[in-house]
């Protein structure tokens, strides 16, 4: 049985990946235990007898039973570190802001995936309000307002366009976290690397969860966002 991981290969950090993994076009004749397949959100196949790992942002294209879901936001090292810092407070209070500029068509599954990740950080959302920009105008923009139970409010803003940027801000009690992927790019010109927006395969394998487990909660967020557009 092979672990078949659908991923954006550009986002995979080979240096910090410790498991043996091969990038393949097809799993026919593969001898590897874990393989990476480029995910373009529409090519996800049903590999019976294998475990398929799929980003939650591509769930609309998933077929098959042995599927595990991973959330891209939760894979990024900056996010993992920030989560750890925020959790240093027993009961974090503050304002959380996430800004995502994405190089893809409007995709509500990305938003649902992020909300899922944020609920693991701040607990159950009491209020979710979603505001979509006017239809027919590009780029599409979405503002999500969330109130979490124990003293956290959040704004999560999305613009679906032609580049990738993530900004994270946490204004806590005597604790402020600021991350901007453009500023924290270790190379100049920045287009020479996808750092810091990379993650490793180990993290995907460790954090992915069976589709049956995550599906109900993701469906709840999908409904709050406004459902999948035809």
């Amino acid at each position: 049985m092979v672990n078949v991981i659908y991923a954006n290969i550009d986002r995979i950090n080979r240096l910090t990946t410790t498991v043996d993994v091969a990038v393949v076009d097809s799993i026919d004749h593969t001898t590897e235990k874990t393989v990476l397949l480029e995910s373009n959100h529409s090519n996800i196949q049903d590999f019976s007898n294998h475990t398929v790992y799929v980003p939650a942002s591509a769930l609309q294209h998933v077929k098959g039973e042995k599927v595990k879901v991973y959330h891209e936001l939760a894979q990024y090292p900056f996010f993992q570190q920030a989560r750890s810092m925020i959790h240093r407070n027993d009961s974090p209070k503050g304002v959380f802001r996430l800004r995502r500029v994405l190089a893809e068509e409007k995709n509500d599954f990305v938003i649902a995936s992020d909300l899922y990740v944020l609920s693991s950080l701040f607990g159950e959302a009491e209020i979710i309000d979603v505001k979509h920009s006017r239809g027919g105008l590009d780029p599409q923009h979405v503002i999500v307002t969330v109130k979490y139970g124990d003293g956290v409010m959040a704004h999560v803003d999305y613009t679906f366009t032609s580049k990738e940027i993530i900004e994270l801000e946490w204004s806590g009690i005597n604790q402020i976290i600021e991350f901007k992927s453009d500023e924290m790019n270790p190379m100049d010109p920045g287009h020479l690397t996808t750092l810091p927006l990379q993650y490793n395969v180990d993290s995907i394998l460790e954090t992915a969860v069976e589709l049956d487990v995550v599906a109900p909660e993701l469906a709840k967020y999908q409904e709050a966002i406004g459902g999948v557009e035809a």
């Binding site: 505001k131 006017r134 503002i143 409010m153 704004h155």
Partner: peptide, 19 residues
């Protein structure tokens, strides 16, 4: 602390963080 989501009369939307 407060976060505001606004809509203008022509459909423009906005988020604001005041604290």
């Amino acid at each position: 602390a407060g976060i505001l989501t606004l809509e203008f009369e022509n459909g423009v939307i906005a988020s604001h963080d005041a604290s």
